[in-house]
Amino acid sequence: MSKAKKTTKKKRTTKKSKAKTRYDGRKANELRPTTIESGVLPNADGSAYIEMGRNKILVGVFGPREMHPRRFAKPNEATLRCRYHMSPFSVDPRRSPAPSRRDVEIGMVMSWAIQPAVFLEKYPRSVIDVYCEVLEADGGTRTACINAATVALVDAGIPMRDLVSSCAAGVMDGKVVLDLGDYEDKEGEADVPVAYMPKLGKITLLQMDGVLPVKTFTECVDLAIEGCLQVNEIQREALKKKYGISEEAEE
């Protein structure tokens, strides 16, 4: 075999590997395998379980119920209170079960992401508690939590304007990709989690980690919204499955 031939072959393979997608074999705009199941907890008013890639997350909704401590109650509307928590065995190495500053922040941005979709004014002075337990983490837990929390809220019979669907996009090896897994989250250049209400066309969560030019950033947002729409379908399927609503009846 001549030297020239060898190099062309090598070139071809590198080209191929570049075209050939990501570390887990997905296409750039492909979600991880995602399943949502609603009504999984007997004691919660509403609940959902999501597997998004290797993320395993349980969400329970309690309420609307009386606000404790009382002084936090709002006289004109309900408070949506999200708690994000990771199990000690959800990551390597083991994590302390005490809530971290990160957990508190994620709980807060989750509330902001979901609130716009809920008719809070229907329940003055009360609280709706959304408890998220990350049993196993694989990157993008906050988006997965939002997706499950939305389904759980619907399962709890709480009136909503729209479903909130969430998905991240980011940049890995210079390429804009959808729904980053743990590896891409850590090794990639940037991560942009987005939550979106498809019917109202509103973004309710937008964060970013990393450094990106504006153009790439907006590309990320566009791709993330595309992912949100895919997630929205999965959420609808989960609810239809639980409540046995057929296509015609939904119209």
């Binding site: 907890l41 004691n43 919660a44 609940s47 349980l58 969400v59 329970g60 309690f62 119920r65 708690r83 928590h85 199990s87 000690p88 079960p97 508690d129 408890y131 337990e133």
Partner: peptide, 11 residues
């Protein structure tokens, strides 16, 4: 051994 009563478990 450590036990967590997650708030999911009961109102």
């Amino acid at each position: 051994c450590n036990a967590e009563f997650t708030p999911l478990a009961h109102p």
